[in-house]
Design a binder for these strands. Structure first.
Length: 442
RNA sequence: GGCGCAUUCGACUAGUGGUUAGGUCACAGCCCUCUCAAGGCUGGAGCACGGGUUCGAUCCCCGUAUGCGCUGCCA
């Protein structure tokens, strides 16, 4: 029981969930789940006035969307709450009193400072190895402040107190905290508390090699949901920043990541975030996911775009034939809209490149004639009849296929033509052909 | 400035005291093909630099450079 693994993610409500934070949360979550331990969410909302309800919600939404469920924290409670620093004032008072009794505090213009023991502190980090800090010089390592004159708390103190109180066994956090760690260790020692194991993971940087900021594309987790990424793809991508399972494995499902993840094998080098690869990876996950999962993730975008798909029974076959083309779910509506309405947009460039080609409409008319007479409207008959027609009028199949695609969809790119025609049905296809003749004949 | 961490193709990474330094994204070309994707093949592209240690270093050690982080009464 005392050896139970307990990790935590301790964000402050800044209004968005940073991908770097999400990755920190992910590694904490993976480590806890791997060791059958507990993953705790604690909100570090000490002295911020902009702590709006939305700012908290963004954190819950982001983590939930990614599937990083917490065992203790907001909404779920736990035995070590409250899980908001803003509600833990009396706890901090107690700990401050303990330090006061130990004579390690002093007042400085109204602020409370901690008197450093001025010794060498050795950090045994699970990622960075042994790191030695010489704390003996006040010039380079000034005594840290624990509390401001107005009574509000400083991060280092409350962070350590909470980790002690919440029995955090492993502190997994960004490498920007490595230099803070000796200070934290001094507090653990002064409080007579056992120190946790530390693991400092490399940071995520932007293309300029700077810390990824809110302005950088892909910095905020909610944009992934908005743009139509699958959470499992984002998890996969983030997991490979600073970590690799080896054997050239890359496309991994969450259970696989869980199985393969090993905190010892995290590297120490900062990683630059590459949205292109994340995008590619999303496509790979889409390719591999079930149609049900695809539909589940695509549906919000379809609804939002107002595509009147009628029923799930009508929608699924359409999704089935576009699934392999889709990279992000945001694109789904444009790929399927014309299946459900006659009022679809016609791409002028597509018209120019196909319907306006010499003889294109005549060939399409020949195809119309053969399809009009087609009795069995299915994939195979559509294909063989089109090929026969091409042979009869002496053109390549592509010379029929391309104009036909534009005629029925308004687009020059799309799924396989025969699949499209089969789903659209004979009546609709012939209608669209006629409409095309009316609209584009000279 | 001080302290800490890092440095393998443009990016993410694998890797070992002796390898043709491997994979993936991106890029280019080719193949496949009804478009677009997907897929296949090929190509360009990398061990920051200088000293050591060693028979031999990308790998170990020391410097230098560069980058990042910390150096707050931010978190």
């Amino acid at each position: 029981m005392s050896s139970e693994v307990r990790t935590r993610f301790a964000p402050s409500p800044t209004g968005y969930l940073h991908v770097g934070g999400a990755r920190t949360a992910l590694f904490n979550w993976l480590f806890a789940r791997n060791h059958l331990g507990k993953f705790i969410l604690r909100i570090e909302d000490t002295d911020k006035k902009r702590n709006t309800a939305e700012a908290y919600q963004v954190i819950y939404d982001g983590l939930s969307w990614l599937g990083l469920d917490w065992d203790e924290g907001p909404h779920v409670g736990g035995n070590f709450g409250p899980y908001f620093q803003s509600e833990r004032n009396s706890i901090y008072e107690n700990y401050l009193n303990r330090l006061e009794k130990n004579g390690v505090l002093y007042e400085d213009e109204g602020a409370i400072r901690f008197r450093s023991p001025r010794k060498t502190v050795i950090v045994e980090d699970m990622v960075c190895g042994r790191v030695i800090f010489d704390m003996s010089h006040p010039g380079t390592h000034p005594d840290m402040t624990l509390r401001r004159p107005d009574g509000t708390w400083i991060f280092h103190f409350v962070n350590v107190v909470d980790d002690i109180e919440m029995k955090i066994s492993h502190v997994i956090r960004g490498e920007d905290h490595l230099s803070n760690t000796p200070k934290h260790i001094e507090l653990y020692e002064a409080l007579g508390a056992p120190r946790p194991r530390f693991a400092h993971i490399p940071l995520i940087l932007n293309h300029e090699g700077k810390k990824l900021s809110k302005r950088d594309g892909g910095a905020s987790v909610d944009t992934y949901r908005a743009d139509g990424y699958a959470p499992e793809a984002v998890i996969n991508y983030l997991s490979l920043l600073g970590w690799s399972p080896g054997e050239n494995r890359e496309i991994l499902k969450v259970p696989e990541i869980l199985e393969l993840f090993d905190i010892q094998s995290i590297n120490r080098r900062n990683a630059i975030f590459d949205l292109d690869k994340c995008f590619w990876m999303n496509g790979q996950h889409i390719l591999r996911m079930t149609l049900d999962r695809f539909a589940e993730l695509a549906l919000p975008f379809i609804e939002k775009a107002g595509v009147a798909y009628g029923s799930r029974e009508r929608l699924l076959p359409v999704l089935a034939i576009v699934k392999e083309k889709i990279k992000v779910f945001r694109d789904v509506p444009e790929w399927i809209r014309y299946f459900f309405t006659e009022e679809f947009v016609i791409d002028p460039a597509a018209v120019e490149n196909t319907l306006r080609k010499a003889g294109a409409l005549d060939r399409l008319k020949a195809l119309r004639d053969s399809y009009q007479a087609l009795e069995t409207w299915d994939l195979h008959h559509l294909e063989s009849r089109l090929k026969e027609t091409a042979t009869q009028i002496g053109c390549k199949t592509g010379d029929l296929i391309h104009p036909a695609r534009v005629a029925v969809s308004g687009r020059s790119v799309g799924p396989s033509l025969y699949h499209m025609l089969e789903i659209l049905g004979q009546k609709s296809v012939l209608n669209r052909f006629e409409k095309t003749f009316r609209q584009f004949s000279l």
